[in-house]
Design a protein around this nucleic acid. Structure first.
Lengths: 177, 177
DNA sequence: GTTAGTGCAAACCTTTTGCAGCTCT
DNA sequence: AGAGCTGCAAAAGGTTTGCACTAAC
């Protein structure tokens, strides 16, 4: 489990393992999900109703600057928040369906190859890398074709299939209390 | 020039080429730079002092949703703004030095390979792809080594070389008037 | 007992929205 | 002429900061 290695890493730096941080670390690590700050806050509040949103932001910032978590934006498919995941795993790309929002992870050798090429090409020292890909998953391709067909039958002008045309309208999450 | 193809593409859709949009398109296309909304606004204001910040955001949003520009965040090396570039060029990765802020572009076959692999692995239809890499450029690696050496000589504890340790503190740009 | 960390309130930056008036086609 | 676009003001969303109090080491 990556949790323990994170905790160790923090202890080494003299960072205090407060109750709040334990809760947050546990949530980030356990849920394989890609949580944003607000979501993480809501989940943490269930374990400690007094835990403040600010603490979530401060903890995430610390973990990010310590290189213990990575920050993603998943192509802003649902707004401008950032998402977080522990750095345990091997480098991977995120593949986001712009229609249903599903996020897949792609591991594989092309990523390492790309990384090596960039390092040698520029003499660059890579600390963080991020590849995000947006489009339509197999399932949504089918559904979308059907939708377009229906629109055509209803006598409407068929929307031209455009590079970014199908992006779902931004749903702004609302902080509830 | 990509400008004309963008203009054509907009005209086709019945989008009006207003004075403001011409100014903005010109700026985005001409400056090879990666501009954020605020910077673009400041530059546009020099040509038309009445042009409003809101128009900049609306134009960028339209271009983005029309697939005519790509939105980047360049690893948030200078804050949480987004940066924009025309989609003319071949797909490329952005390589950002976290110390000096320089942005390099990497073209090359590993990117296409990665793209193809993702498409075939998931049966995914890619519309947008983005690879951003953060670290130290060749020049800053040298400077940083020197800095660390000096810190050591001054009797301080040598900062452990950390995955994300050297990121410059966030400078929040301020809207001036 | 120190010092880092927390909660609260308020600020901050970036981006969006409502609406009246202007302007491209 | 009329739909589309702009500017203005105001709001919203996400995130950060100042400060007094609390808790981890």
């Amino acid at each position: 489990m990556a949790l323990d290695s994170i905790k160790g890493s923090l202890r080494e730096k003299g960072v205090r393992l407060t109750r709040q941080r334990q809760i947050l670390l546990e949530l980030i690590d356990k849920s394989g999900l890609h949580l944003d700050a607000e979501r993480l806050y809501q989940m943490a509040k269930e374990q400690d109703p007094k835990l403040n949103r600010v603490t979530v932001y401060r903890t995430l910032k610390m973990l990010k600057e310590g290189g213990l978590v990575d920050e993603l934006d998943l192509m802003h498919h649902a707004g401008d928040q950032h998402y977080y995941e522990t750095r345990m795993k091997q480098e991977h790309a995120h593949v986001i369906c712009l229609r249903c929002g599903k996020v897949e992870e792609f591991f594989g050798e092309p990523l390492q190859r790309l990384r090596r090429q960039i390092e040698s090409h520029f003499g660059f020292q890579i600390l963080l890398a991020r590849t995000e890909v947006g489009g339509y998953c197999a399932h949504c391709q089918t559904l979308r074709a059907r939708e377009l067909e229906q629109a055509r039958q209803m006598g409407q002008v068929a929307p031209r299939p455009h590079p970014d045309g199908g992006v779902a309208p931004r749903v702004r999450a609302k902080h509830s209390a």
